[in-house]
């Protein structure tokens, strides 16, 4: 099953342990893993299910190509890494 890890920067806001998920795409994996984690989900996706603008996702070290649809394929061995973009101020 794909594993989902979250940036440690989330830890200041809430617990974000590593999760496992079912699914063949990033979208399916996130929907599965966060189905019972509404608060954590809301940190990563907005209420319309869109990836937050300043959050990004890497699959085994490479950034996803479909931020909008989250259709990038994942396998049972994929590590999905949810991290924040950097911003100033």
């Amino acid at each position: 099953m794909p594993r989902i890890r979250f940036t440690s920067n989330l830890a200041r806001h809430l617990a974000a342990p590593e999760l496992t998920a079912e699914g063949g795409t990033v979208r399916e994996a996130l929907d599965d893993a966060l189905a019972d984690e509404a608060l954590l989900r809301s940190y990563v996706l907005d209420e319309q299910g869109r990836l937050r603008r300043h959050v990004t996702i890497f699959l085994d070290g490479a950034m996803i190509t479909d931020r909008r649809g989250l259709s990038d394929a994942v396998t049972r061995d994929t590590e999905i890494y949810v991290l924040q973009a950097l911003s100033g101020g």
């Binding site: 920067n9 989330l10 806001h13 809430l14 608060l39 809301s42 940190y43 990563v44 907005d46 937050r52 300043h54 959050v55 924040q84 973009a85 911003s87 101020g89």
Partner: peptide
């Protein structure tokens, strides 16, 4: 939050502790 959206916190003890 710049990255993680809008959050709302509530405190019932005058701000000693907060709950999202």
């Amino acid at each position: 939050l710049g990255h993680f959206g809008c959050r709302l916190h509530r405190s019932g003890d005058g701000g000693a502790s907060w709950q999202e």
